[in-house]
Amino acid sequence: MSESRFSTDERAWHAWITPVDPATGTEPQREAIEASIWPNSPYFRLLAWHPASLHARTLVDQAVFLGRPGLRRGERELAATVVSRVNGCVLCTSVHARLSITFTKREDEVRALLEHGIDAELDPRWRAITDAAAALTAIPNAFGPEHVAALQAVGLNAAEVLDIVQSGAFFAWANRLMLSLGEPLPPAADDAQAIADQQANDARAHTSED
């Protein structure tokens, strides 16, 4: 039995202030919700109070994680998982740990990260990625030339190093919103639509390339 509060279990998210109701929202609000990753989630509906920034944020998310070529998707998801684990975002950690496992097939190491945090035993490549993402997370200035050198030593080129930086930095943003505007809870009947969005996104990942 795990002692850690971090897992790959699905989590619903409940807002602390009222989200936008798509039925009564403005056209830009409805469009920003529809373009988001999970249109039925109260998280994206809440961010739709300011539709321009939600829309731009969705574009950043897709550009950072889906853009090709570059670092394998699974290792970008690993960086997202590390940052979310360090920041303490239970929902982001569960979502991106599942995606890390889907793309890398390395379930044991991902579960070790959830259980033990960034000191988990990892191979040199994942150690370098984890150390870089964690350094950038605490205070950005902790990330230095030694992290770049360690990533290059395990085979990453400069573009792939920037993929780690951008994947980690995006979760500095995403974690702060998710942690501060509501809370994760085990799914209940009312969360069915929002959870279905997460499952559809997971299913798309299963048919995507790493």
Partner: peptide, 15 residues
Amino acid sequence: AFVSFQVRIAHGLTV
């Protein structure tokens, strides 16, 4: 949250 993202990318690029 956006500034948190922005300063991390900028710092990474500076390095």
